[in-house]
Each structure stands twice: as C-alpha cells, then as structure tokens.
Amino acid sequence: MAPKRTRDGESNPAGSGADQVVKKRKGFSVGPANLPDGTYRRKTQKIKSDLIQKAKVKKAYAKIKAQELSTNAPKPIFTTAEEEKGETRHQQPKPERRPERRPERRPREANGHPRQRKPKPSAFAKEMEIAEKRKQEAEARQREREARQKDREAMARAKRLDQNGKRRLGRESNVLLSRVQRMVGQN
C-alpha cells in the first residue's frame, strides 16, 4: 500500500525517505528474449555488448570530466583592478582529458609475432554443400537420361533391316553388350 499523504506542515514521523523501497534496476533487453541460438541471436548479443561498452565509456568520461571541473577553480565574475588597467594574466586553458579507449589485445606467440587467425567459417557453408550435392545429383540424372536416349537410338538403328531384309545381329549385340557393361559398372 502507498503511504498516507501528510497534511501541509506535518512531517512523517518515521522519516520521509525511510518508507520508500529502492527498486532494483533491471538490465535492458535488445531484441526478443526467446530467440534460438543462431545468426539473429548473436547479432542482438553483439548490439547489447556494444551498448554496454559505450555506456561504460560515457560513464568513465563523465567521471573524469567531473574531477577536472572540481579541480579547476571557477573563473571570477568580477574584474580586478589589474584587469581594468589592461594588465591581464594570460592563462592557457587545460585541455579536457578524454577516457582512453582500451588498446586492442592481439594474441602473441612465444616468439613475439602475432598469431594467424583461422579463417572464419562461412555462415552458409552447410547450405552451399547441400546445393552442390543437389547439383551433382541433377547432373548425374541428366547423364543417365542422355545415356538411355543414346541406347534407344543405337538400338533403333541396329534393328533396321539391311538391304536384303535381314536383321543386323552384330550391331544389336554391340548395343546390348554396352548396356550390360554400363549396368554392371554401376552396381
């Protein structure tokens, strides 16, 4: 329940700040929370980590800036007698310090040279393998169709009668032999 409202002029006997509960801050979310592990989830995690890093840098910058402002004495609004005469002291303003970015850490080998990174695997390597397999299967089916068509044409030529009206058994046997060899070679 909410605390009772006090009348004007009255004070809360328990203390005004003692009754209020400090809410615990929750983190922020980027993207849907129920994404499966994959490209989209990794992308949202990267965005979130970048936002966190930027917030840390901003916080560090604000802290340093506050320190600088507290150490520098504020300039007086009024002018002194020396300044009115034209004898001004020239002071160079101190440059503001900015938080340094974290240096890139590069893994080093024992000999001091940077390690060679492995190439990043392609995001679509599996899909490309499947596509290549399908392409090879389609080419094999096409070759098989062409071979059967060639056999049919060769058998049709071989079955034509010669000038005397007799069958050409030698040509027919050659076509049948090549067909059997191909069948035996496949199995």
Rank of each mutant, 00 (worst) to 15 (best):
R143H: 09
Q186A: 07
V22R: 03
A138I: 03
K135R: 15
T80E: 01
K59F: 08
A138N: 08
V30I: 14
I64M: 11
A55M: 08
S49M: 08
D37E: 15
V175D: 01
D162F: 07
A60I: 05
Q116I: 12
R97T: 09
G165H: 04
E83I: 06
G86Y: 03
L177D: 10
K133N: 08
K56L: 08
P93I: 04
N174S: 13
E100T: 08
P103C: 01
K43H: 13
V22W: 05
R179L: 11
V57L: 11
Q91E: 15
V22D: 10
R117N: 06
K75L: 15
R152F: 11
A110V: 11
Q181P: 06
E153Y: 11
H90V: 14
K48W: 02
A138P: 01
N187Q: 11
Q163H: 10
E10T: 04
E144S: 04
P13V: 02
E83Q: 14
N12A: 03
A66E: 13
G185E: 04
E87C: 02
P103G: 02
R41V: 01
A18V: 00
R148Q: 14
K94V: 07
K75W: 01
R25F: 04
A158I: 03
I130P: 01
T44Y: 07
G86C: 05
